[in-house]
């Protein structure tokens, strides 16, 4: 990949994927787990509320999905731009 425009497009695509991932990352941890917990208190999960579940379990599961999705999407992107190894 010699073209500068290609490099820029690759980097912009990477940043877009990161941006979307981090929005989800934020909503599922800081959002549902802390800031929005009072709003979600009506939704009951196993003897407590949804916010508690996200804070102690759900957020971690979302993090796992996010990293593996990111890795898979980036592998595709690497191939598309011919920068894979």
């Amino acid at each position: 990949m010699a073209e500068n425009s290609d490099k820029n497009a690759y980097w912009a695509a990477n940043k877009r994927i990161i941006g979307i991932s981090l929005v989800i990352w934020f909503i599922c941890s800081f959002g549902f787990g802390i800031l929005l917990r009072p709003m979600l208190s009506g939704i009951k999960v196993g003897g407590t509320d949804l916010g508690f579940w996200f804070a102690q379990q759900g957020s971690i599961l979302v993090f796992l999905v996010l990293i593996f999705t990111y890795a898979a999407k980036m592998n595709k992107l690497d191939k598309k731009y011919g920068v894979d190894e």
């Binding site: 991932s21 941890s29 787990g33």
Partner: peptide, 23 residues
């Protein structure tokens, strides 16, 4: 519940590591 910061903080950091630093 108050200690959830440890659970989210010490795992959520890996999302940052995977996307922003390690590669």
């Amino acid at each position: 519940y108050n200690t959830s910061a440890y659970l989210m903080g010490w795992t959520g950091g890996y999302v940052l590591l995977a996307m922003l630093i390690a590669p």
